[in-house]
Write a protein that binds this DNA or RNA. Structure first.
Lengths: 198, 198
DNA sequence: TGTTTTACAATGCGACCGCATCGTAACGGC
DNA sequence: GCCGTTACGATGCGGTCGCATTGTAAAACA
């Protein structure tokens, strides 16, 4: 059987086992042995596909980023005729932990954030997608301005940061049990109402 | 020498050693042995004052909360004649990691947040101060409304959540190196400018 | 067919972990 | 002066960690 193994598929399989475990105890609380068990293989096998734990962590991070991007773009495209406002709302809501899956995804983001704080290499990998997302948000705001739906005095870059801030922080509050998803979404809408005033 | 030892002082001493270490590797990366070494005492001594690691963590969390509250109220009171706006701004700026100390404090908050996500008991202790802070923010907004500085249509509770969101999220962005403290503060001012329009 | 490479399993190593235990020295109360 | 309690240091235990090493079977290649 050896030799015809699809390395990428195996790595993805391991990465998803890791991500599943991460939602329970964070990155530091996950061991190679646990990942191997969760993925249904031996520890030697995991070692075969990832030389170090750190390499595995980085691969899983990239994998998650891919999944997340796909999910968000799919959500946006599914929203019928997309307007800047509906696009932004879809993105923000998608980020919030509304159900088990999105909560898991949010937790993974938190776990990697923690890791990134202490590990500069991880910080680089973790922060890579961020400017891109903010630029996308800013662009949507700009388009809305051109259409006259957002006041001209709004600063698209700062607005993008504020929009992200709301989703990010409200997500944490939901995790802490201080807010319900519905409350968080209405907070998002509250802000969008204010931003989108001609 | 025994018997006349000030237990509370010893516990604070240990807690501060723990907090110092926490800024480097997070809560999970800190061991009893390290804490003892950092506090300049033996591990047995630490065990004497805290039966379990978890108890130590919880005490340190409360200690930090006390320090933080004192620091913020001191800052607010030092601001000459306090207006709701200046109070809110002082609070938000105080939360942001602007220098080494405030960065350390922010990191400690993050570390406890992580812990709280996985540990319900810690979540309770961690989240205790939150509603209180939000209520304080909301009250400031309400006062500004009464004075005619904030539009009547603003919702104080949601505004409080938004203000916290900005500080929280911008703080993370600073840690990740995506924003400078100055940029984050100008984002805060941008939002306050918008909120405080008669 | 013989050789090399790949895929995986098993085991071991040294380090570290939280926690329990034990010994001991210094005080306060009788 | 004795005794009980308190403060603390030292050591050890069982467990887990990441990682390295070794063994073995199966396919690819010659």
């Amino acid at each position: 059987m050896p030799k015809q193994v699809d390395h990428e598929q195996r790595r993805v399989q391991i990465a998803e086992a890791l991500l599943r475990l991460t939602t329970r105890a964070g990155l530091e609380g996950v061991s190679l042995r646990q990942v191997a068990a969760e993925a249904g293989m031996s520890m030697g096998s995991v070692q075969h596909y990832f030389k170090t734990k750190d390499e595995m962590l980085r691969f899983a991070l990239e994998h998650r980023h891919r999944l997340r991007s796909e999910r968000i773009t799919a959500k946006v495209l599914a929203e019928g005729p997309p307007t800047p406002r509906s696009i932004l709302r879809a993105c923000l809501v998608e980020i919030l932990p509304r159900d088990h899956d999105s909560e898991a995804d949010f937790l993974i983001g938190v776990a990697y954030f923690i890791r990134a704080v202490a590990d500069p290499a991880m910080a680089k990998a973790f922060g890579e997608g961020m400017p891109e997302l903010l630029a996308f948000f800013a662009d949507q705001v700009r388009q809305a301005q051109d259409a006259g739906d957002v006041p001209a005095w709004a600063d698209p870059e700062i607005e993008a940061a504020l929009l992200w801030a709301i989703a990010d922080s409200q997500g944490s509050e939901i995790l802490m049990g201080h807010r319900t998803p519905a409350e968080a979404i209405s907070t998002v809408d509250y802000y969008l109402d204010r931003l989108f005033t001609p």
